[in-house]
Amino acid sequence: MNLIIKSLPDDLLKKAFRTALVGVSLALLLLITATVNAETQVMELEIKNHLFNPAELVIPANTKIKLLIYNRDPSPEEFESYELNREKIIIGNSKGFIFIGPLAPGEYPFFGEFHIQTALGKVIVR
């Protein structure tokens, strides 16, 4: 009896693991193909003298945006927003991008974490 109990979890575990793995990879594949097909609008944001330009970024509601961020300062900056759930370091004199949206109408503040006193802005979704 004890032998059965001992051998059971091993088999079960292997089977469950395999099923979970197949399930997760299928779900990921579906999600990736679904996102690849969508046409994405690109918008640009610039960091200069530790200021965002434009400080207010107006984007349409329920639309995915690829936000290209240029850091024209020599020092690194971290684009961060609690409301957008985004966080990315952009090294000095380089660029990076993040995806934002689809978002509901409203205002979503963002900031440069490394220069929080000046680097402030918001995404306005209409």
Binding site: L31, A34, T35, K64, N85, R86, E87, I98, F99
Partner: peptide, 8 residues
């Protein structure tokens, strides 16, 4: 999600 590998 940020890199658009998972949908936002």
């Amino acid at each position: 999600i940020q890199a658009d590998i998972l949908p936002s």
